[in-house]
Write a protein that binds this DNA or RNA. Structure first.
Lengths: 134, 134
DNA sequence: TAATTACCTATTGACATAGTAGGTAAATAA
DNA sequence: TTATTTACCTACTATGTCAATAGGTAATTA
């Protein structure tokens, strides 16, 4: 289940891509256009800045801007950064303690396969792919 | 993210499939073999009975049994029954209020596509497919 | 100097997850 | 008949995550 964090992050990135001509886009504008609380977006945007996907400039005339061109972002990296992980079952998460039944587990291969499919799907999509849709 | 409910349900179904020769399998045995609390399994097994995937018989010599052959179950129906839904984003869940931005949403097609892929993946797998692995 | 913007820490209410506790009802074996 | 074994039932709880809100400080420009 993908949470609002990942979904909103994607919408912020798309909003920035659509307003890439403006030097910097204030979060206030994004919040208004997207109909999302600015306060909540602050949290999400913080992750995006820390992950070097966007950069922010303070002060009047400041705001946020993409660091790269839209075709140079994958949806996967945006989601993974804001969601923490794309892993679909706890067994496969990074911090998860290694299950001692793993070797004989009948279901683990299924989760592996699904995880792989999910990863390939989202890393195969570029931000620009979503932009192009009309 | 698939929770323990769905994952344990799958393991219960597999355990039952592997012991289909025995008339009925007590939950106690399943819990011991799988290393899962019997009390917790009760909750999960209840869903499976209500969904007519398995049947239970009380009393000495009782236990649970599959209603069909392993190749007649899909992983999807087992997960959907116990997880409630396989929907990956809130926008697509059954009870979700229809988003008024849906028509112009740049991200919705992505979620639709992912949802479709997930659905096809899990409904394309049969219980017997997991059983066969060695 | 005032306005505007990003950026920071902390808090909260609601809900889901992952169980536990303590029973009752049904069926069989002794 | 009685004891045992099993399913089945309702309720409770601790923990954590989600989705936000609150109330600031620092930086930059007009």
């Amino acid at each position: 289940m993908i949470s609002t964090k990942g979904r909103y992050a994607l919408r912020v990135m798309l909003d920035l891509a659509e307003h890439a001509d403006e030097a910097h886009v204030p979060l206030k504008d994004i919040a208004e256009r997207q109909g999302i609380s600015k306060k909540y977006l602050e949290i999400i945007v913080k992750s995006l800045v820390e992950g070097r996907l966007i950069e922010g400039i303070s002060g009047k005339g400041g705001g946020y801007r993409l660091c790269r061109k839209p075709e140079e972002y994958t949806v996967g990296e945006i989601l993974e950064l804001t969601e923490g992980s794309l892993a679909t079952v706890a067994c496969l998460s990074c911090g998860a303690p290694r299950c001692d039944r793993a070797s004989e587990c009948r279901t683990l291969p299924l989760w592996f396969e699904f995880d792989r499919m999910t990863h390939d799907f989202f890393y195969g999509k570029k931000l620009s792919d979503l932009l192009a849709t009309e």
